[in-house]
Design a protein around this nucleic acid. Structure first.
Length: 143
DNA sequence: AGCCATGCACCG
DNA sequence: CGGTGCATGGCT
């Protein structure tokens, strides 16, 4: 089983710097990401799945992967996007800042991932060393 | 304060 | 006009 990694540059909203009390980070609707994360049934309104992410310190974070799709179900719906919530504590403990990178890597087991936070400076270094990353508007898929 | 669910703004 | 960042009302 090939191991996949995707990364996301954090926005101000993601780290709670904007004063918004909204939770979670947006997950762009990219085919690679939908395959990377658990499949959610679009026929269901707002389906979700729980994933378990182990950080470099061995702590496991239970994150909620949710598909807000009321646009497909309600006449006045406006949402059609994926989100990842329950990240606040993780970001706080890692002192996440705008521009920092969250990295997810698959494991052998479904719904289990590795999670790591890279600060912006390291991320730039990584970019030079990794010329064959696939750019996905904020998110990248590595390999 | 943080999560849920949704609306709005902006930009390509 | 679709997609994503920013924001908000309600609830816990």
């Amino acid at each position: 089983m090939n191991r996949l990694t995707v990364t996301k540059a954090l926005t101000a909203n993601d780290v709670g710097e904007t004063g918004s009390h909204q939770a979670g980070i947006a997950v762009p609707k990219q085919q690679e990401l939908l395959e990377f994360f658990p499949a959610l049934d679009a026929a269901v309104k707002n389906p979700d799945a729980w994933i378990f992410c182990q950080d470099p310190d061995g702590r496991v974070w239970k994150l909620r992967f949710i598909y807000y799709n009321n646009k497909l179900h309600d006449p006045d719906g406006t949402r059609n996007e994926y989100r990842l919530t329950h990240l606040t504590l993780f970001l706080k403990q890692n002192k996440a800042q705008v521009g920092d990178i969250v990295r997810f890597t698959t494991t052998e087991e479904p719904n289990r991932y590795l999670i790591a936070l890279e600060h912006a400076s390291e991320a730039k270094k990584q970019e030079r060393v990794d010329p064959d990353v696939i750019r996905l508007r904020g998110w990248r898929r590595v390999h």
